[in-house]
Simulated scan of single mutants.
Amino acid sequence: MDLFIGGLAISAVLLIITGVTLLVGKFRKNKLNIKQKNWLLIIHMFFVMMYIGGVFGMLLLAVLTKFTIDNNLVYASHVFIKRFDHFLVIPGAFGSLITGIWLAIRTHWGGLTKHYWVLAKWIGNIVAIIFGSTYVRIWISDSLSTSQITNGIYPLQNPAYFENRQLLFVGLEICIAILFFLIVISYLKPWGKRDERHLNDI
Rank of each mutant, 00 (worst) to 15 (best):
D85A: 12
L88D: 02
L88S: 04
L88R: 01
L88Q: 05
V89R: 00
V89Q: 05
I90D: 12
P91V: 04
P91R: 03
P91Q: 10
G92D: 06
G92P: 11
G92E: 02
G92I: 07
A93H: 01
F94E: 06
G95C: 08
S96R: 03
S96L: 04
S96V: 14
L97G: 05
G100L: 02
G100K: 05
I101Y: 00
I101L: 14
W102S: 12
W102Y: 15
L103C: 05
L103Y: 11
A104S: 15
A104H: 11
I105D: 11
R106A: 14
R106M: 10
T107H: 07
T107S: 12
T107E: 00
H108S: 15
H108C: 01
H108T: 12
W109E: 04
G110L: 10
G111S: 04
T113A: 03
T113H: 01
K114W: 03
H115N: 13
H115I: 02
H115M: 03
H115W: 15
Y116N: 03
W117I: 06
W117K: 02
W117C: 06
W117Q: 07
V118Q: 05
V118C: 09
L119V: 00
L119H: 04
A120Q: 01
A120E: 11
A120G: 02
K121Y: 08
K121Q: 14
K121W: 05
K121T: 03
I123Y: 07
G124R: 03
G124E: 10
G124Y: 11
N125T: 15
I126K: 04
I126H: 10
A128I: 08
A128K: 08
A128M: 09
I130F: 11
F131N: 13
F131P: 09
F131S: 12
F131H: 12
G132K: 07
S133R: 11
T134Y: 03
T134V: 15
T134M: 12
Y135A: 14
V136G: 05
V136H: 10
V136L: 10
R137S: 15
S141D: 14
S141L: 09
S141H: 06
D142C: 00
S143A: 12
L144E: 01
